[in-house]
Design a protein around this nucleic acid. Sequence first.
DNA 1: GTCGTCTATGGAAACGGTTCCATAGGCGGC
DNA 2: GCCGCCTATGGAACCGTTTCCATAGACGAC
Lengths: 365, 365
Amino acid sequence: MSRRKKATIREVAQAAGVAVGTVSRVLNGSGAVAPQTATRVREAIAVLGFMPDAAGRSLRSGASRAIGVLVPTLSNPIFARSLEGIERAAAQRGFSTIIASSGYAPARELDVVATLVARGVEGLVLTLTDTRPDRIAAVAGQGVPFVLAYNQPEPNAGPPAFALATVDSRAALLEATARLIALGHRRIAFLGGAFASSDRSRARYEGYRAAMTAAGLPAWDAVEIPFDAQDEAYEAALGDLIGRLAAPTALICSNDLLGLHAVAAARRHGLAVPGDLSVVGFDGMPMARIAEPSLATVAQPARRMGEAAVDLLFGLIAGGPPRQLILPHTFLEGGTLAAARADADPLRAGSAHVLRPTKPNRSPR
Amino acid sequence: MSRRKKATIREVAQAAGVAVGTVSRVLNGSGAVAPQTATRVREAIAVLGFMPDAAGRSLRSGASRAIGVLVPTLSNPIFARSLEGIERAAAQRGFSTIIASSGYAPARELDVVATLVARGVEGLVLTLTDTRPDRIAAVAGQGVPFVLAYNQPEPNAGPPAFALATVDSRAALLEATARLIALGHRRIAFLGGAFASSDRSRARYEGYRAAMTAAGLPAWDAVEIPFDAQDEAYEAALGDLIGRLAAPTALICSNDLLGLHAVAAARRHGLAVPGDLSVVGFDGMPMARIAEPSLATVAQPARRMGEAAVDLLFGLIAGGPPRQLILPHTFLEGGTLAAARADADPLRAGSAHVLRPTKPNRSPR
DNA sequence: GTCGTCTATGGAAACGGTTCCATAGGCGGC
DNA sequence: GCCGCCTATGGAACCGTTTCCATAGACGAC
């Protein structure tokens, strides 16, 4: 059943008693082939277990039937899920998916893209760490169609110069922050991934800022957390926040992973969530939703985003114009959300902030 | 800076005033090249921004510098993390990673492998859904070196016929089950992924069985959950278990994803974890560890397993014999673990099991 | 019957590299 | 001073496929 050595198109041609060109035509349905001949060829293919070699095909035709994907990391389930959408949508068109990750390192990114291009991918789905115009131009200079996914470059006047599939992070966070304000929160802090590695984090912070400003509240400086942070880093960051004279009563996190870690860190600091601190995330990871308390969050359709990005990409490959797609987000209520306590505001209540013990209740290891 | 059209080796040769063979030699460090000539060639390469085309290279030399990876799903962070290890270890050797997922469908699996092989990958890292000898033979028949990761085929006498990197699921679950028994649990149920799609799930069940039998306790039938299960499926499965006259006081799950869902489902059924039900998972997902209560689990070194699999693979590619590597697992205590309540055993306490209300405490949506 | 058209097919060139073979020149040993 | 070997390099074959061109034969129109 299994062949020792891979059969070539020449062997198939010989077995079927036709020329290699004819086999190729049968394979690709390109030229006219007599039905009877085609059958004979197909039989030979089946008997020999022939599969066309991708390298030979790609070399001659330039069609590798593969797309390249760059994500910052596979450890964040949101990217993993979007990859599932990409992989499925590509496979549906007979395309393979070559995956690479940048590890959130802007410096490696362009090299990785170049490697993918050298592999002959026909298109790229990229989540870049850095989306300044010159970086995007550098990618465009590779001459391969590409779609940005999850990215949130500065909006640009005129027709779009590149394709994009994303949610409107800024608007989503504006909305989420407004919810917290409506719940009576006044001191709302923002915890985000490093701005240098994530335009999403930055866009979300801007949304937060805009909402705070609109409500006449002071926007806090963003607390940036590196993407490879360990538990201790979260704990330290949170300790810094709650140690302040006027500690926040709510915390907005630029993704669910941060949100879950923030909840855990708050707990270790002896804060009740949502009693002492409300927390909101971003992404809508299923695992954050089944946590207790469930994480309030802005859900984005990750899988669909992956599929949409591939759709856009094949539009480009077919010669269409670059389109920018904003997918809908949904605010999900959750157990980490509560109204601000009446006594939470030291200015209003006239009481000084009470410092809590730092780590009274560390959970068992 | 960016080239409109990709340069070829012939253009480089012309620019440097040498033959194409010489450029190739510089590129691969294969033959002897005068330092001065090499410099000239390297300059031409830099000026033209030349990158060798993978298809051409692969076609002639058979060296695609790519490996193929098959995982059941990317949605389980354990595979995503192992992929990070694979990707990194491969990239370190200048290899790209082509990823495909089977979606836990045994039927698709062999096709996917064939597709990867047709792409000319030089090796495969596979997590198969089905590891019966004939399936492994079918993979071996493709003539490409491969390593199984995470898989747990029936042990075989004699020297190993294929390479393997895994933890000893059976031993790990034997140990975990023994821990529960030591905590006084007698009625311990097993919740696993569908056996038909996971030899790990099966091996873990066997470990559980062995431990129960060794302790003179009856082993329960495994409750199998499909891998695409929704919340409702978990709830139903758990409802069935706790609705029994002699309900379990502990639950062993074949992975952390199941474990987290089981904890959530138990909560929705009004059971306290670990008060009414202890839960143990498998994998050591970071997210399960920061949950409250933290999930007791058997941790496996996912990233290292990915790296180890690639090491084994390159051993094979270099012509070495297939090696089988068992990585160490660690039992992690967690908040989902408690001693069995004294009144938990209806036989011993002489009291009938009290049926609890089914869904009194559903968490907010 | 001749011509033109159309279909089915054979055969060869081409894709962009690597690898092998041939060879020119330099150099040391005798 | 000749021979042989070694180094550096040129040039061509080759990998497996697609694509293009040529052609044989069938068939309809006149």
